[in-house]
Design a protein around this nucleic acid. Structure first.
Lengths: 120, 120
DNA sequence: TTGACATTACGACTATTCTCGTAATATCGT
DNA sequence: ACGATATTACGAGAATAGTCGTAATGTCAA
């Protein structure tokens, strides 16, 4: 994932409504949700919702498909993994020592790894 | 990490210069870097740099300490781990089945966990 | 205490983001 | 083809973000 893409993805998620939409879709899984249902879930007027859906789509975070007269949106999990990957890889990149002590649990590059989940 | 904090952190990172600053500091490790050096590294006029440093600081992503007449900034690795944690935990939350197939390696929620690292 | 350096505060300007209402488009059932 | 439903396109408005230059603050060395 390239830096400009990361910036766009971060910017897309850095908004109350869009983050809410995205979380909703992530929760929903690949099955997705039609625009109307998303709007209801979040409590957003249609035209505003479209605006945010487009932002998420431009950022490559969500996918769109048609089903009858509805447009179904779903999270793009690859993109999300790419984003997280970018952040974490940059964490310990170049400064192993600093990170071994600073980067908490996940740290230890190739070894034991105690409690892998629940970071915060 | 709470949602509003996540939004602020994402927003802070969602900018070319701030992301550059942050990556520079992450690379540098806990030792940190004085404002001037950061400005040179990124190529940013002092007043603009301050603007962005404050944004990162407000978001809780970086720390500031004084050393002589210089102010040293360093990445807050806890915050970064919190952010990544928030993103990943939300990934598979609530929809185990969907995620087991979609969320790639990390998947399997409470069980074996094969290759914990390298998400993308 | 004076002068030099490092950094931040402040103000002005431009550009972008977000919001909504209304109009347009696409699909379905009849 | 027609009316109903689902969604997007467009335009206008207010709010916010980002940029820079210049002034103010804090720290050091003498």
């Amino acid at each position: 994932m390239k830096t400009p893409d990361v910036i766009e993805a971060l910017g897309a998620l850095a908004h109350e409504h869009r983050l809410a939409v995205y979380r909703l879709l992530v929760q929903r899984g690949p099955q997705g949700l039609p625009a109307g249902a998303i709007g209801e879930g979040i409590g957003l007027v249609p035209s505003s919702l479209t605006f945010h859906l487009q932002a998420l789509q431009r950022a490559g975070l969500i996918l769109q498909r048609r089903e009858g007269r509805q447009l179904i949106y779903s999270a793009d999990f690859d993109a999300m993994n790419g984003l997280v990957g970018y952040l974490t890889e940059n964490c310990c990149a170049g400064s192993d020592q600093a990170c071994a002590t600073a980067c908490k649990p996940e740290a230890t590059p190739t070894k034991i790894r105690k409690q892998p989940r629940r970071v915060a």
